[in-house]
Amino acid sequence: MAIKFERVSFQYKGIDNKGYLALSDVNLQIDKEGEFITLIGETGSGKSTLAQHMNALIQPTEGRISLFGLKIDSTTKKKKKIKLNPIRKKVGLVFQFPEYQLFEETVEKDIMFGPKNFGMSTEDAKRKAEEMIEVVGLHKDYLSRSPFNLSGGEKKRVSIAGILAMEPDILILDEPTSGLDPLGRNALLEVFHRIHTTLNKTVIIITHDMNTVYQYAKRVLVMREGVLVYDGDPLKLFSRGNIDKWNLDVPDILSLTRDLETSFNITLSPPPRTRQDLFKALEEALS
């Protein structure tokens, strides 16, 4: 297991020492390759805190985490010997706002920043930048542009390329598609899907969009008030009981499927996860 959480809790220190429990008793295991996970939950449910634990940006106040064999607990910070940087290379975390990380004069330099920090030579980092800008679906011409004169979607792609260039085994994306129009969102989701399938990396996406969850994820994690309440298959997640219990939005495809099945007394199988699947299944059911 690449990532293993054992009874992990995390308490933020608040003003006047009233702590705020952002994670509570989380147990979790994530593989190094082949997983496509979505992490969902309301604002403030602990999603981002959980993600930040996965690359040792913050350490648990209780419990233990093992990241690629490195044990991390509440005492880790004090021990100077333990180097957390190698973990951050293995688990790449893309923050929600690309503005948090872009700072160099050119896109190329910004993509090279991460890899060089982890000891990659300038030439190799350059090569990586050229490779990754295309992986995220931008033309090489972008490399010489300033990251600050790009559109929101382009900035996002550049920030993702900057993390991919570090060659992480696991890629975590915090709300990567928020604010993008449908075309931009779908294009970016395809990029993640491609990274997952062709590079065989584990991809974890934090999102509010249930359609993303339903269409792409093999596994869903649901956070609620700091507790990991669900860890499993997206199909089962959207069972009627869970939807009521956690006040979830139902994915468009699923709600339509269910509606058609009851209204027309047909069965669509296997349960369609994409628009194309739905069309095909319906055609078959009707003929």
Binding site: D181, P182, G184, N186, D252, L256, R275, L278
Partner: peptide
């Protein structure tokens, strides 16, 4: 760059 609502897209299909 926009998407049809799912039921409508199905209808077109």
């Amino acid at each position: 760059n926009l998407e049809l609502l799912l039921p409508l897209e199905l209808m077109h299909h």
